[in-house]
């Protein structure tokens, strides 16, 4: 069962990301990417890492993709005129992919959690993940926190207004 789901999810993920990078309309591309992230989250769940699956949905499919959409809207990259007619070829693939994703999700939800077989060899409980992060990988967590600071300084440097030419005269 689980391995069958794995292949279905893999297919959904690959198709969605492939469609994502081939779409001309950036909004469509983002929607396909969201589908890809959801499939990835389910895959993490199947592999025995429920916390990572939740993060995938909350952080990537949720926060980051909303930010993407927001920037696309703000920069006015989305096409202005709406095409005529039902346009099956445009949203048909999306409906197929997301409904099969929905089916997989429902299947996993209504299954008894104790009976769910996982593909991975190890079930990663959230507590263990936390212990690893702040024990074995403590230094890495610290360096990441430094790095966020550097990255924000860099973004500020590149994003702020240019120095005036006539300042020095």
């Amino acid at each position: 069962m689980a391995s069958l789901l794995f292949y279905i999810l893999g297919f959904i993920m690959l198709t969605a990301t492939l469609l994502c990078i081939t779409r001309r309309n950036p909004v469509h591309a983002v929607i396909y990417l969201v589908v890809g992230f959801f499939a990835l989250a389910l895959m993490f769940y199947l592999l025995g890492a429920p916390l990572v699956a939740a993060w995938e949905v909350i952080v990537y499919a949720g926060a980051i993709m909303v930010l993407f959409l927001f920037i696309i809207m703000m920069l006015g990259l989305a096409p202005q005129e709406l095409p005529e007619g039902p346009n099956w070829h445009r949203w048909g693939p999306l409906v197929l992919l997301s409904s099969s994703l929905m089916a997989c999700t429902l299947l996993l939800i209504f299954q008894d959690p104790a009976a769910t077989e996982i593909i991975g060899t190890y079930y990663l409980a959230p507590q263990e993940l936390g212990e690893a992060l702040f024990g074995r990988y403590a230094l890495a967590v610290e360096v990441v926190s430094f790095q966020l600071l550097f990255a924000s300084i860099g973004a500020y440097m590149l994003g702020r207004s240019l120095p005036k030419e006539d300042d020095e005269s």
Binding site: Y137, A140, G154
Partner: peptide, 22 residues
């Protein structure tokens, strides 16, 4: 550790990306 090396590389590179486009 692979993680330390990778993060060190990223810290170094991100600073350099900014400095190259300074």
């Amino acid at each position: 550790d692979m993680m330390t090396i990778f993060l060190g590389l990223e810290v170094m590179s991100i600073s350099l990306y900014v400095l190259a486009g300074f």
